[in-house]
Design a protein around this nucleic acid. Sequence first.
DNA 1: CCCCGCACTTGACGGTTGTTAAGGGGATGC
DNA 2: GCATCCCCTTAACAACCGTCAAGTGCGGGG
Lengths: 230, 230
Amino acid sequence: MDNRDWAIVRATPLFGAMPQDVALSIIGTKPVRVLDKGSLLFQQGEPAASFFVILEGWVKLFRSTPEGTETVVSVFRRGETFAEAAIFLGGRYPVSAATVTSARLLAIDGDVLRRRIIEQPQLALSMLASSSYHLKGLVEQIEQIKSLTAPQRIAAFLVNLAPASEGSCLIELPYEKTLIAQRLGMKPESLSRALAKLRPLGIRVDRENVSVSDVRLLARFAEATDQIDE
Amino acid sequence: MDNRDWAIVRATPLFGAMPQDVALSIIGTKPVRVLDKGSLLFQQGEPAASFFVILEGWVKLFRSTPEGTETVVSVFRRGETFAEAAIFLGGRYPVSAATVTSARLLAIDGDVLRRRIIEQPQLALSMLASSSYHLKGLVEQIEQIKSLTAPQRIAAFLVNLAPASEGSCLIELPYEKTLIAQRLGMKPESLSRALAKLRPLGIRVDRENVSVSDVRLLARFAEATDQIDE
DNA sequence: CCCCGCACTTGACGGTTGTTAAGGGGATGC
DNA sequence: GCATCCCCTTAACAACCGTCAAGTGCGGGG
């Protein structure tokens, strides 16, 4: 773990809010785990031993039914933590986790964290802030699925990825379109169609590269109650 | 607040996990708020001053867009707490809240809670457990919306409400069908039609009374990947 | 007692999405 | 260099759901 990694850790809602020495004492000299794309981190129902910080790459959280269908709940990226809350929920993970790119992660022991919370009460506030942050993300996702059409959901997804909030820009899709579709609650075919529908709004797609001619226009489309009339 | 109310408070994940005297000191002699149906408790974006315990009645959390469309995120009932997490999220509510029946609530000051957490570290663990519980609820909701059809979602909703996990039973719908529809992410018309589709499975609906002839059958239908073939 | 409003249901219709199928193009392995 | 696999796209079709419209029944107010 180098300085760059350390900067990432300090930028998380969880480790950013606590004093530096406390953060250091929790992370300690944990080795960085380097993983291939598609590595399973933990499975839904397993005892929740640890939680994770992403130093590099992308990780999906998903639920699977006995029949084998898989529902993606969220996808996290570098600088995000996940599964912190699971440690406090009867000690079992409510979802499974797997990397969707090659990745470097920090795994942090749950027991250690729990003990530290007792010693360092402010630490609990950081944890709560971080867990609230995840809660808010899920709430926003529910709102999007319930109230937006497929093209609007991708529009919102692209706006989130855009480096600026206006003007034109280029966006590189961070992972496969199949996964994006799952994350947005639709089939890959629907994603293709929805992206095609955004063409009149100045969106061009070539493999993983997306060019947006007017981010603000896209954002307005994502929020609009009435749609384009061809 | 009488003994019955106190029992409800102690049955919440939040106040159940902490020592009795701590719970008492937080709730103190707070007056119980008695509210009419449709009372607004707080609005999305407001500073999060307090969180709530429901002693009686039902409360919905929702997000509204500037255009006026409303998305219901969750509906809570007697014995549940809500908005605890908001207090730790930049101090603003990410959703609005309103009663959907007449209700009796306990409003608990956020600052008090925060101060107590510093003094009583185990308290933080209770908070985290409670916030994890809500997280899990949202995850399950996302899974349902993404992977189930409308009839399956109501089936799951009814199974949750059923007093037993097998055999036959009578269920009284706790609030208006319009709200149930919003909670399940569909229109009232779709709810009607979906309930009609459950008739072959032994579901009869008369106003707010639902009779289920075989709960297990209903539960199996809610999880099935393939549907009834008429 | 009647009128009105509201919640709910039912029907017809159209749009959107899932399904199934086919094909293109880049990456990988031999 | 060629075959193969996988990801993605497009198309046709069907199912589902939202929309619009009409109608019922209960309950409240005049």
